[in-house]
């Protein structure tokens, strides 16, 4: 099923939860709404499901306007952050609930529920109560339950939010594989950028009720279209300067600027991984001193003092750092390989 959202608005007590949001999802696509808490991403999802009624705007599912259609008839599968399993029913009864309330006979819904438990890798646990399952198992039951009624659309609201980091990564991979198999149009809401970038065909970054960027994961990371996206997705160094002769000078660093006129105040963002650090000049005129080194596992994070109170953060692969003998107090040369400039209202 495909979705089309047209100029959606929703206010809660005078505060805009969604402010003029439009986007579309094509059949079989996996799209993620990424944003901080309070950005309105969950509200969009709840509007699509019919759990909230938008103040204005339209929601089309397969070309049909569903804005006035009650939740029960939208045929969407919704997975909640805290699972929302019916705790007084067995796992099998939970999974079969959607079919049961539609008047499907017991034998039939039980069969279908067993099939789905197998799909999510929980066959044999149908007789348990939800309280006897682990967090990851519960979330998979919730997913099986949402899929059992054969929805045309799967909506996931922070589905891994209540799980620990390791389990979250496991389930993420598993979910992507499942999607590749069943090809169900899926809309995921999350605040976890790794989850969004790894899982989705397309990512919508939301902030303050608006969509900041709608692009493929790679483009979100490499070509952020707004300062918010650049700052929210991945780590960044953020500097502020004024354009002068198509250039911005910040301490010893210079950045080319062709799209801003002279005298414009701009914010410059670049990723610590986009900073090339070497012990030899290698054509770089900018040098600094390593102030601190922090071990992050595969990479090392260094704070480099550029003098006169200017400093930046750089991430260097562990092997490179060891080979070059980077230690605290060592003099290094740096080059910023990729940066993003944005019009800035904020102060330095």
């Amino acid at each position: 099923m495909s979705i089309r959202i047209e100029r959606l608005r929703k206010q809660f007590n005078g505060y805009s939860a969604i402010d003029n949001v439009s986007f579309s999802v094509s059949d079989g696509e996996f799209v993620t709404l990424l944003g901080p808490s309070g950005s309105g991403k969950s509200t969009v999802l709840r509007c699509i499901a019919g759990l909230e009624r938008p103040d204005s705007g339209g929601i089309e599912i397969d070309g049909e306007d569903v804005t006035r259609i009650p939740v029960q008839e939208r045929k969407v599968g919704f997975v909640f952050q805290h699972y929302a399993l019916f705790r007084h029913m067995t796992v099998l009864e939970n999974v079969g609930f959607g079919l049961r309330v539609r008047g499907v006979k017991r034998r039939e819904w039980e069969g279908k529920a067993k099939e789905l438990l197998e799909l999510v890798g929980l066959s044999g646990l149908g007789g348990r109560m939800p309280s006897q399952l682990s967090g990851g198992q519960r979330q998979r039951v919730a997913l099986a339950r949402a899929l059992a009624a054969e929805p045309g659309l799967l909506l996931l609201d922070e589905p891994f939010g209540a799980l620990d980091a390791r389990l979250r990564r496991e389930l993420r991979t598993w979910l992507r594989k499942l999607h590749d198999r069943i090809k169900l149009t899926t809309l995921l809401v999350t605040h976890d950028q790794d989850e969004a970038l790894e899982l989705s065909d397309r990512v919508l970054v939301m902030n303050r009720g608006r969509i900041e960027q709608d692009a493929k994961p790679q483009a979100i990371f490499d070509k952020p279209s707004t300062e918010f996206v650049a700052a929210f997705v991945g780590e960044t160094n953020r500097l502020v300067g004024v354009v002068h002769n198509d250039e911005v000078q910040w301490g010893p660093l210079k950045f080319g600027s062709y799209s801003f006129s002279d005298g414009t105040r701009v914010a410059i963002l670049f990723r610590p991984t986009d900073v090339y650090v070497s012990s030899q000049p290698e054509g770089s005129e900018v040098s600094g001193v390593i102030k601190t080194i922090q071990f992050l596992g595969a990479t090392e994070s260094m704070e480099i003092d550029l003098g006169k109170g200017f400093s930046i953060t750089a991430h260097v692969p562990k092997g490179v750092a060891e080979q070059s003998g980077f230690t605290q107090g060592k003099k290094v040369y740096i080059t910023v390989t990729r940066s993003h400039l944005f019009f800035s209202l904020g102060s330095a």
Binding site: A49, L51, F78, F80, H88, A142
Partner: peptide, 27 residues
């Protein structure tokens, strides 16, 4: 009472009375 549970029930197609009888009343 967990409101999400009622929402889950409606999403699965339960009418209001079905939600009441199958989900709320047993609790």
């Amino acid at each position: 009472l967990d409101k999400e549970m009622e929402e889950a029930a409606v999403c699965l197609g339960a009418r209001r009375w079905q939600t009441f009888v199958h989900v709320i009343l047993p609790i």
